[in-house]
Amino acid sequence: MCGRYVIARAVGDLVAELEAEAEASLELRASYNVAPTTDVPIVLERIIDGELHRQVHVAKWGLVPGWAKDPAVGVRAFNARSETVAEKPTFRTAFKSRRCGVPVQGYYEWKKSPDGKTKQPYFVHTADGSLITFAGLYEWWKDPAKEDGAPDQWLLSCTILTMASPPEGELATLHDRLPVPLSRESLAEWLDPENKETQPLLESALAQAWDLAGAWELDAVSAAVGNVRNDTPELIVPLT
């Protein structure tokens, strides 16, 4: 699964790395302890005036489907299982045409001690500090309680896809679920809103995921990350 992660890039750096565009007014809050229901950057593609545009937006982490009566349903939908994403009512519509990428600098996972009494947090990241982009979905939800045209009437939300962890290696001992990473090439395919062959698209992303994840590094870090109120760069400093 993926329930905590790091994204502290400045807007300009994020846009450059994702080869995207963003509104001049876009603001991002650097966070070393991102948790579900907070606002996070996502990258998506839209067709505007016949041309494809890759854009960075800010979305609430926890997908709220358009048919939901209450946005609180997003609290339980921050991850989507790749095995059932095409069938689950919460995700299946977005899976068809509203796919996004969720950029992170790394994510946290907790490993149980041999006696099962304690858990050690680990920071999972690339060796060179480059971005990881997870396969995600996004949705727009309209608040019926708000007046038409109100600036906060529409809520943009997102989720991160997960899959089974590799059968061997460090990640296998960390958790049985893995957020699905995308290569630069597979990101372009995943974001394309005109690509309706969703099952082959998903299978292609999953086929590459273990190889991509195999290059990640795992660092034991402070237990302070367990408290979401702690949000400083020191959280990702490896324990010595």
Score class of each variant (00 low, 15 high):
residue 1 M to V: 12
residue 150 A to K: 07
residue 10 A to C: 11
residue 84 T to Y: 07
residue 41 P to F: 13
residue 68 A to T: 00
residue 201 L to T: 04
residue 115 D to K: 02
residue 173 T to H: 13
residue 70 D to S: 12
residue 27 E to F: 00
residue 55 Q to G: 00
residue 231 D to C: 08
residue 197 E to T: 14
residue 60 K to P: 04
residue 69 K to W: 11
residue 64 V to L: 10
residue 142 K to H: 06
residue 8 A to S: 13
residue 188 A to Q: 13
residue 133 T to N: 03
residue 67 W to T: 03
residue 69 K to R: 13
residue 217 E to N: 04
residue 144 P to L: 08
residue 2 C to G: 11
residue 83 E to R: 00
residue 210 W to T: 08
residue 102 V to M: 06
residue 175 H to R: 06
residue 25 S to T: 14
residue 31 S to V: 03
residue 130 S to V: 04
residue 79 N to D: 08
residue 218 L to Q: 13
residue 7 I to E: 15
residue 46 R to D: 08
residue 46 R to Y: 05
residue 86 A to W: 05
residue 169 G to A: 08
residue 29 R to Q: 10
residue 146 K to F: 05
residue 12 G to I: 03
residue 181 P to F: 02
residue 25 S to D: 15
residue 208 Q to T: 04
residue 59 A to H: 10
residue 146 K to L: 13
residue 54 R to W: 03
residue 169 G to V: 10
residue 170 E to C: 04
residue 128 D to M: 01
residue 217 E to P: 00
residue 26 L to H: 01
residue 222 S to V: 00
residue 115 D to E: 06
residue 206 L to K: 07
residue 101 G to N: 07
residue 213 A to D: 10
residue 128 D to K: 05
residue 151 P to L: 02
residue 50 G to M: 14
residue 203 E to W: 00
residue 153 Q to T: 03
residue 199 Q to L: 15
residue 49 D to M: 02
residue 134 F to H: 09
residue 193 P to T: 01
residue 24 A to P: 04
residue 136 G to L: 05
residue 17 E to R: 14
residue 237 V to E: 06
residue 14 L to N: 10
residue 59 A to S: 09
residue 176 D to F: 08
residue 20 A to V: 11
residue 79 N to M: 10
residue 99 R to L: 07
residue 114 P to Q: 11
residue 199 Q to S: 13
residue 169 G to C: 10
residue 16 A to Y: 01
residue 84 T to L: 13
residue 84 T to I: 12
residue 219 D to H: 14
residue 17 E to Q: 15
residue 87 E to T: 06
residue 120 Q to N: 09
residue 124 V to Q: 03
residue 69 K to S: 12
residue 157 S to N: 05
residue 180 V to G: 00
residue 223 A to C: 03
residue 153 Q to F: 09
residue 105 Q to V: 01
residue 172 A to G: 07
residue 125 H to A: 09
residue 3 G to N: 14
residue 137 L to E: 05
residue 81 R to D: 10
residue 32 Y to H: 15
residue 20 A to T: 11
residue 216 W to G: 10
residue 20 A to I: 11
residue 227 N to T: 04
residue 113 S to R: 02
residue 213 A to G: 11
residue 38 T to V: 07
residue 235 L to P: 11
